[in-house]
Structures are given as structure tokens and as C-alpha cells.
């Protein structure tokens, strides 16, 4: 179970970053960290002891393969992560050109 707990620690590190960091790039980085931890968690869930990578050799039978479904899910999630990072970067560079800083304390027109 240690490996799952370490995975959750990585998730918490990302969460900590999202909450405490005050830099647009650092916030994007924290989101990536959270994504990484979830990818790893999903792949760990699908791992089977002594299982083979899910590529079948057509001649053989009776092999144990690891679960392909979490891998397909993670593949989808990686691409989603790329999409969100790209959007965040687009906004970050635009805000930088307007304010000359990545610091969100100086970018404050709005108050929630």
C-alpha cells in the first residue's frame, strides 16, 4: 500500500502548490503534478503481478496481461492534460504581456 500512499502524497503536493503559489507558471506546474499522480494511481490499479504488457503474441495462449482499460483511460487523460496546459499557457503569456509579471497578486482587477 505504500506506493498508493506516496501517490496520494504527490497529489497533495500538487494541491498545496495550487493553493499557495502566487505565480501563474507555478500554478500550471502544480496542476501537472496532480495530473501525474492520478495517472500513476490509475496505472498502478491496473497492474497485475507477473502480467505481461497488453500486446498479444497471436500464437500463444494462457498468458496473463495487465488491465488495458486503465491504460486507455490514462492515455485519454494525458491528452486532456496537454490540452489544459496549453490553454493555461496561452492565458499566462497574454497576461504577462499585459502586466509584465506572472505574479497574481499584481494581477488583480477582479475580486471573487
Amino acid at each position: 500500500m505504500t506506493v498508493y500512499i506516496l501517490c496520494f502524497v504527490l497529489f497533495l503536493v500538487g494541491l498545496y502548490g495550487v493553493i499557495t503559489r502566487r505565480n501563474l507558471i507555478k500554478i500550471a506546474i502544480s496542476m501537472s503534478i496532480m495530473e501525474f499522480s492520478i495517472f500513476l494511481l490509475l496505472v498502478l490499479i491496473g497492474y497485475i503481478d507477473n502480467g505481461l504488457a497488453p500486446i498479444v503474441d497471436p500464437g500463444t495462449t494462457g498468458q496473463v496481461y495487465v488491465d488495458p482499460l486503465p491504460q486507455a483511460m490514462v492515455l485519454t487523460a494525458i491528452v486532456i492534460g496537454l490540452a489544459t496546459t496549453a490553454m493555461l499557457m496561452a492565458i499566462a503569456i497574454r497576461l504577462y504581456r499585459k502586466y509584465k509579471t506572472f505574479d497574481i497578486r499584481e494581477i488583480k482587477n477582479l475580486r471573487g
Binding site: 507558471i25 500550471a28 501537472s32 495517472f39 496505472v43 498502478l44 497492474y47 502480467g51 505481461l52 504488457a53 497488453p54 500486446i55 495487465v66 491504460q71 490514462v74 492515455l75 494525458i78 491528452v79 492534460g81 496537454l82 496546459t85 496549453a86 499557457m89
Partner: peptide, 22 residues
């Protein structure tokens, strides 16, 4: 290590591209 070669390929490429963009 976890027998997910497809993911390894996608992750290494996507990570590189993310790095370039960042």
C-alpha cells in the same frame, strides 16, 4: 516498469512538447 509501453511513448512525447511550450 508497470508494463504500459503505450503510455510511456505518449507521455515522453507529450512531456517534451509541454516542456517546449512552457
Amino acid at each position: 516498469l508497470l508494463k504500459a509501453p503505450d503510455l510511456a511513448i505518449v507521455q515522453i512525447v507529450v512531456e517534451t512538447i509541454t516542456l517546449v511550450i512552457m
